[in-house]
Design a binder for these strands. Structure first.
Lengths: 231, 231
DNA sequence: GCAAAAGTGTTACCCTTACACCCATGT
DNA sequence: ACATGGGTGTAAGGGTAACACTTTTGC
């Protein structure tokens, strides 16, 4: 580190951007906002905004999550994804953006915040292949999806896509949507119910979805580091 | 994102910090520099420095690596670790630091750069337990070690700790040092030589280390995403 | 010859996979 | 009755772990 001199360090703007993923209609979707101003006016972008000068990075992510999506931290899983800071990623000024990955259940439609002209869930596949996101957000989204897919293999994060109480079938549907594969229902059931520290029986059952009543589970909270799972 | 106004965004300093790990004397070691100025004068710290205003984040990491350690990108593996930006992590001003993980072979002692009064390899275990690093660098180092340990399980990154040409025994010694466990030499040999896309035979052998001559290997370059390995 | 490290063979065990089969509901 | 999804049983196959054993050098 260099000696302190208030005029010696280059000033950067620091923002947070959110990759908010959910499973809707059997596919992986991402929350996007439509930009109301230049640059990239009218284009879809990840929700995000400036970090305040006395605000922790994670606090900024939580604040933007609430302001732009209406989601609360209790509802979702949030983790730091990566930081993007190419010199001209924002044409207006030098911006370093700390991206966060958010895994959310399929909640009622998000509320557009004050900064965004519009906000909506969009299928990840079509969004990435169209390649029309603002800034370097397509790259950030791609990294976020890759991280989500990888983490579902060795953690119990799949439950983050489900409501508070869910069936094994609903959990399996989330995994299938994220990975884009079909999983054997019988083996999947054995695996998740047989993994310690993953699911907690509620004792209640449900018949939503049809067929024989299914046990309802909740995710084991404070899942420190549960090893887990592929198919 | 908010409209552009050159006075509207809070100015941050952005730095890079490096967690440079190697295996020396059979144990995992980290490259530290001794701080010559306040704050934390005289304390050990991770090498790092300010990102320049027109410089990519990864370019800043590579530059600091060269300036403070004498290491070149060709010699090492480098990946982004995480970003640390608690409001008072640096008492002088608001600093957001992008940390990078570097895995290096056991090279000749690093050259102290201009910014650092001193630089040397230090055992990771003792460094973490003493808890006397500057700033939040103990936390960053801890995260870096955790990442390194995890990535060795599912990638072929262990070879980053070895020289250009190495034996299976030397590779195993690196894994044992990073994980702090003993691995079965026979099974380890079968595993790494049997994993496609990991090792490339050079055809040459060596008897350094004693015993029967061992085949020399190089790491398969551009290891895109090789699945791999525990034990 | 002996120690030391490299490398191969073999076997028991576990986890995954595939799929036959039964269970409990709604219609 | 039948369709639908929930859940259990079971056996084959692949990978891991433990370890006996052979190979090839230096001293």
């Amino acid at each position: 580190m260099t000696d302190y001199d208030p005029h010696a360090f280059p000033p950067f703007a620091v923002t947070v951007d959110l990759v908010v993923l959910t499973v809707r209609d059997g596919e992986l979707q991402v929350l996007l906002v439509r930009r109301g101003v230049a640059p990239y006016q009218g284009r879809w972008a990840l929700p995000g905004g400036f970090v305040q000068i006395d605000e922790d990075l994670s606090a900024a992510a939580v604040r933007e999550l609430r302001e732009e999506t209406g989601l609360r931290l209790d509802d979702v899983h949030l983790e730091q994804l990566a930081t993007y800071g190419a010199p001209r990623r924002d044409p207006r000024m030098r911006v370093v953006s700390v991206a966060w990955l958010v895994l959310a259940p399929d909640l009622p439609s998000p509320v557009a915040g004050t900064d965004a002209a519009d906000a909506s869930w969009r299928p990840v596949d079509g969004t990435l292949s169209s390649g029309r996101l603002a800034f370097d957000h397509a790259s950030i989204l791609s990294d976020g999806v890759e991280r989500a897919r990888a983490k579902l293999e060795y953690s119990s994060l799949g439950a983050s896509f489900c409501d508070d109480e869910f069936t094994v079938g609903e959990l399996r549907a989330a995994y299938e949507a994220v990975w884009g594969v079909e999983l054997d229902p019988r083996n999947f059931h054995r695996k998740v119910t047989g993994t310690p520290g993953f699911l907690v029986e509620t004792g209640r059952t449900t018949t939503r979805g049809g067929g024989r009543p299914a046990m309802l589970y909740t995710a084991q909270d404070a899942a420190v580091n549960p090893p887990l799972l592929r198919g």
